[in-house]
Design a protein around this nucleic acid. Structure first.
Lengths: 360, 360
DNA sequence: CTGAAAGCGCTTACAG
DNA sequence: CTGAAAGCGCTTACAG
């Protein structure tokens, strides 16, 4: 007896196939399998037959066809700039929240990577061509004109934006307060010479942390020393170089008691620079960061830091975006009314990288 | 004279709109604007008129319609299990390579997250519904039956698979050799008691590293001591606990000279466990890992490790997948012939976390 | 060199 | 309660 040849599935089953197998129209199959509203109109027996036929044929609705008919892709985009050519800890953390929320709401997520927010603005417009229903911008640094020129037909949401624009809902955190709390905490431990190794000046996030740092010094009765405000970029290698160069120019006696990094990446850079000179953390110098990314928990010692709820912020970005998309499709004016920024609380997290000041 | 009311763009321009504006058919517009092959058949003047009309109308091809007609979404999927509920360093590294290669080839990338490879197999089948042209499986641990039951109509590629299947091209690295080289290196530094804190037994990657470890001990004239082969999982907290529990049960005199972690996450867990007991790395114990993920460079001291070219493997996975997709669409048998696994070389990377053995 | 037709697989009115 | 028809915006044969 010849073996029955295993039939090669050359194309996926369609609603028409299911309908034929169940002895009904494709439309009836659609109502049962994909439709929410009209499915009650099918008799129970027919419904059962359709469901069985679909299972036998391993029917799966074709997303492209459905998107074409519905003008809805059930896909949200995430746009991010590759810093130094790679995704970083901050993104990984937020992205965890984004994909979790998207999956929960039956949406798929697609990632678009850019080199530069202003130069690649045209590419962003290009993404808004029906393949996504809305877009999450992660840390955009658009100029104001570019931000305002983004297309109107796609809803946007931004995580930690550096520009406000009429069409973009932004999600931020209480960065100034977080920085303030952390520096106050260092001062209360007895630290006097507190350095802030900041992110690039001009960036909203960097400036807010600098403000919190200065306010905390003042409230702690410590004078602001411009020599202890050192500008770096939000990256490990850049921060390492910036601190190393500072240390080269200063005698041991001027060593800070504590270093507050503008991000966890910056703090990790500081750890590396100190370690290379044989300085111990926290015995010789205390170090803390900002973000509470995964990196903060994998250094030795673990990094004290200002926690931003990045996963929560990512998932909330999805929720807000989907709400805007819904309003947009309903042509509701409410879409343009929900533009107030959403602010999340920060909190300081104490770990082994800070301690009392060294006795010198 | 009444102001001409600025028409609100209620829907995007279509090829039919462009054609009408240029006085030609939608088909002619398609040939000029989207078609590659047939575009030479349009006269230069007509072509210019069409291009101008498209620019005026800000025409953008509708992705869903094009996908439906072409049976091609220009999108690849990436499926990954969230270990402990989150994406990890290994993934971040490979994902960097994936998105880079996808963008270069004009493809978008969508990420699907799973809880468990076997239990979520139905969901994977669900993704293969036209929304993606092919799927990259990251570290799948399917049972053989489940792997074989994956749909035939979508090409698959797997990074570090734990199961071989007829339909999946796998990308692997020379893990056994990498582990061997690293342990040989430790032995050559004078280490005698070399612990291997391995990944979960049964996983292909973990087993290969164990084999390399054993072979290197043998070639170095060191006896294999089962007490020094400690099983963990590929995660920081689990590894920390596993080592901590081992240390609790052994006297100081039995402390290993060196610990070879089955992954960078495991090595980081080891760093934490040692640090918590006041043991210094590398002065008291040398530690090394496997992967060369970002984490390896951000620990203090930096982690010596066996480098797998994860970014390259990610981008190569995209290239191979796109090749398979092309063959699949051409109904070419060659698709099923390119199933040989692709093996990448590993190399050991020496950093500050290893040194000569402690004198005890 | 160009156009009318049919089809991709789905959904939403409109008829029975 | 169910089906035939038209349409979403694009492409690919097929005719001229």
């Amino acid at each position: 007896m010849p073996r029955s040849p295993r039939k090669k599935t050359v194309r996926a089953a369609t609603l028409a196939d299911v309908g034929k197998a169940a002895g009904v129209s494709a439309m009836a199959a659609s109502a049962v399998l994909n439709g929410a509203r009209t499915s009650s109109r099918i008799s129970p027996e027919t419904r059962a037959r359709i469901i069985e036929a679909a299972a036998n044929l391993r029917y799966r609705p074709n997303v492209a066809a459905r998107a074409l008919a519905n003008r809805r892709m059930n896909t949200i985009g995430v746009a991010v700039v590759l810093e130094g050519g790679e995704l970083n800890y901050y993104f990984l953390e937020a992205f965890n929240g984004i994909i979790e929320a998207a999956a929960r709401q039956g949406q798929t997520t697609t990632v678009f990577t850019l080199q530069d927010w202003n130069q690649d603005a045209a590419r962003i417009t290009g993404f808004c061509d029906g393949r996504i229903d809305g877009l999450i911008l992660v840390g955009p640094t658009f100029s104001h004109e570019v931000a305002e020129s983004l297309p109107d037909h796609t809803p946007f949401v931004a995580l930690h934006p550096n520009t406000q624009a009429h069409n973009i809902v932004s999600l931020e955190s209480s960065e100034e307060t977080g920085a303030y709390d952390m520096v106050r905490c260092l001062a209360s431990l007895g630290h006097k010479r507190i350095m802030h190794l900041s992110g690039r000046k001009g960036l909203v996030g960097a400036e807010r942390r600098i403000e919190g740092y200065k306010r905390a010094l003042k409230d702690s009765g410590l004078a602001f020393d411009p020599d202890l405000l050192v500008e770096a970029h939000f990256s490990v290698p850049h921060a390492r170089l910036a601190l190393d160069s500072w240390l080269s120019k200063h005698s041991e006696a001027l060593l800070p008691d504590a270093i507050f990094g503008g991000s966890d990446s910056i703090a990790v850079g500081a750890l590396e620079a100190l370690s290379a000179r044989g300085l111990r953390v926290p015995e010789d110098v205390s170090v803390c960061g900002f973000d509470d990314a995964l990196a903060a928990r994998t250094t030795v010692p673990q990094l004290a830091t200002v926690r931003q709820p990045l996963r929560l912020m990512g998932s909330k970005a999805v929720d807000i975006l989907l709400e805007r998309i819904k309003l947009h499709h309903a042509h509701s004016h409410a879409e343009h009314e929900m533009i107030a920024p959403v602010i999340f609380n920060t909190e300081i997290v104490l770990r082994g990288s800070i301690g009392p000041p060294a006795r010198r």
